[in-house]
Amino acid sequence: MIINQKYMKIAVLVKQVIGSESALEISSDQKWIDESNATFVMNPPDNYAIEEAMQIKEKLGDGEVVIVSMGPQRVQKVIREGLSKGADRGIHIETQESKNIDPLEVAKNICHSIEQENFDLILSGLQSDDTGMGQTGVLIGELLNMSTATLAIETDIDQETIKVKRELESGWFQWVTLDSPSSVSIQSGINQPRYPSLKGIMGAKKKEIKVIAASIEDSKQNLDKIFVPQKSKETEVIDTDVDASVDRIVDILRSEIKAF
C-alpha cells in the first residue's frame, strides 16, 4: 500500500509588537514610542497564522512549521512562543536597533534568509497592531515568485491543491485555488489559537532558533514623526440624568439633524 502523504514545509511570519496595555509615550526624537517601559507581545493576528499552520500540518500528517521573525534580540521570545505551541524550529533575522523599517526592506531581508528553505507555504497575520502596513507576506510572495492570497478565513489544503476562502467586503466570500508555492495572509478569527502546553513550553527550550544578521540597505519609506492626532470634530457631550438626555436627543433629532 502506498501512503501518499504530502510533506508540507510551512513558514509563519510573526512580529513582536508593543502590547495594547502599554503606555504609549512618544520618544524624544518623536520618531517612535519610548520602549523603555513598554511590554512586548506576539502581534495578536499572528497567533491565528501559527494555529492555521499547525492545523494544516496535523491534517496532512507530516510537515514542518518554521517560525520566522525579524527584529532585535527580544523577538526570540515570540519565536519561542510559537515553538511552545508545537512549531518545529525558528529563524531569527536579527537587527541591531529597535526601530521601524520599511516593509519592503523587511521583506527583502526575510527573502534573503529563507530563500534556500523552499517553503511550500508562507502564512502571515493580517497586519501588525503597531504600524499596520499589512503587506509583508504578499511582498515576500512576489519577491519569491509565489502565488499570493490575502484575508483567508478558511483553508482547504490537501495533497494536490491549496484552496483558501477569502473574505471580501460586505459579507461576501470567494474560494481561490492557488498554485504552489504560495504566500497567504490569514484573517483574524479563522480558528481558535491554542495555548502552549507545559510539555510544549519545556520542549521549546530545546528547539533550534537559527540567527541570521539583517542587512538594511536603503529604506525608501521613512517614518518621520509620530504625534497624537488632533480631534477634528466638536463633540457635544450630554452627561446628565435620563430624562434630560432623552429631551436633548429628541431636540437633536428633530431640530438639528432633521431626522423626521
Binding site: L24, I26, I33, P103, L104, M133, G134, L223
Partner: peptide, 28 residues
C-alpha cells in the same frame, strides 16, 4: 513603497494611523 490606509496627504508627507489609531505617523 506601498504606504497604505492614509488619512491625509500634504506636500508628499503621508499621514497614517498607527498603534490601533491611538497615534498618527507622518511618513515620507
Amino acid at each position: 513603497p506601498f504606504i497604505p490606509d492614509l488619512v491625509s496627504v500634504e506636500n508628499s508627507s503621508f499621514t497614517k494611523q498607527i498603534m490601533n489609531s491611538k497615534l498618527n505617523a507622518s511618513i515620507s
